[in-house]
Design a binder for these strands. Structure first.
Lengths: 249, 249
DNA sequence: ACCTGAACACCGTTCAAGT
DNA sequence: ACCTGAACACCGTTCAAGT
């Protein structure tokens, strides 16, 4: 989460300008790979076009020749992370298929937790997620009996439940002074007055650092496994109730 | 969403250094108000400490004297937006109370959509949300019969459902070239092959720009009202099923 | 206590110029 | 087509100095 060692950043190794022999040492996907590796190691806060450029041994303008924009590069990274999450179609009942999707998606995010904040909270990155994911969820929900307006609603609920939870679970810590901030929040949480907030005070040992809003570590160090499993169950149960109503039972 | 007019930014009106007469022209909350107003008008992308400083007619260092850090200021802003969302306790059944909370929270975010990305996707801002919100949700869920581990799980699911959905609904557009990006995504969506993605292709008129991942406007211009209502229902239904299991019925 | 004025070490992006 | 080298217009934050 902190910047790499502040060595005097060397200019890219001096080479003459112009097209390299063999044509095209760099490419969009190579840059995206480097960016993902860097984000995995140092966090999104330490990511910059210049940093990626210097890691690749080229000038910043070179990166821009390939990817146009910082946001576009991050969208590429997000797409890479989510590339393999969609389960194959037609092998599972819709409830099991959605459950499997949630599990595979969380596994992918746990491999690259620092990209979580891109998936749901940035329209550009969100829009770059694989079309198979969209189709898969829609197909599962169609199998459940949804169509038209109710299909749209069920779809949005599934995507929001999945990406929304992961966005929150892996939301980033402060860029600097992490331990000072954590200490302050921990202090505030442990001095909650039982008279003002009785249920919270009574359940504090169970909730502190494990419940949203009253935690100072994210899912990387304190994963919310059981809550995520519960979120899946609640979503599926709610969808089944919705499906029964739609079918007019 | 775009930067304010690029007039030659005037230095703060020249005044002598030192303590102003009357003591303390500026304060933390005054700065937070100015920041919120600026974010409402120009978006989080146009927010900067220097911009706020120049709008207040002071030097950047002056702002830092009051708020320590950019992240801390944004947390203050997030807390301000969410200050009044928690419904009063003890007047509603737990299902109605949670439903009311969802509605009030979304109303608050719709008044300040550009801060949505702070609420769930930044641990610092998330941790600054009002304690009454936490207590209120816990009290409602305790009334529903949850306690201990199941209370923790139900709580996390409620918060994730609420803030997760809103984070996604109001996730920001690209900082620049918005219309070019939108056009590109629209084009990609409308050339989806029916053979590869049959359900998506068949329902495209209903889904385009209204379903997550396949949209190019956010909730500010295309609100997802019915999906949010459905999300509430699904969450409540799922919680009720969970409560029945917990009670061993 | 509260603010100025300037500096430090960064950013993303653009552009002419090379080969 | 692909890259250099430099520039432009920004950042957040720190710090000595003023009153």
């Amino acid at each position: 989460m902190k910047k790499p060692a502040p060595e005097p950043k060397p200019k890219p190794k001096p080479k003459t300008a112009g097209r390299p022999t063999g044509g095209g040492a760099l490419s969009k996907s190579l840059i995206a790979e480097a960016a993902l590796a860097h984000i995995d190691e140092f966090g999104l806060g330490a990511f910059s076009m210049r940093e990626i450029a210097s890691q690749l041994g080229v000038y910043p303008a070179t990166v821009h020749w390939h990817v146009s924009t910082r946001e576009a590069l991050l969208a590429e990274v997000a797409a890479t992370v989510m590339a393999q999450v969609t389960p194959p179609a037609g092998t599972l009942a819709w409830q099991a298929w959605i459950t499997e999707l949630f599990h595979r998606c969380r596994a992918a995010v746990r491999r690259h937790p620092n990209v979580a904040q891109l998936l749901g909270a940035q329209l550009v990155s969100n829009g770059s997620l694989p079309t198979e994911l969209v189709e898969g969820v829609l197909a599962a929900l169609a199998e459940a009996g949804f169509e038209g307006q109710s299909l749209l609603e069920a779809y949005n609920c599934v995507i929001a439940a999945m990406l929304g939870f992961l966005t929150m679970e892996f939301s980033p810590l402060p860029a600097d002074n992490t331990q000072a901030w954590a200490e302050e929040l921990r202090e505030r949480v442990h001095t909650i007055r039982p008279l003002d907030h009785p249920v919270l005070a009574r359940n504090l040992p169970l909730l502190a650092n494990k419940a949203f809003i009253v935690r100072w570590d994210n899912g990387t160090t304190v994963p919310l496994d059981s809550s995520f499993e519960r979120h899946i169950r609640i979503t599926i149960d709610g969808l089944e109730a919705f499906a029964r109503r739609v079918k007019g039972v």
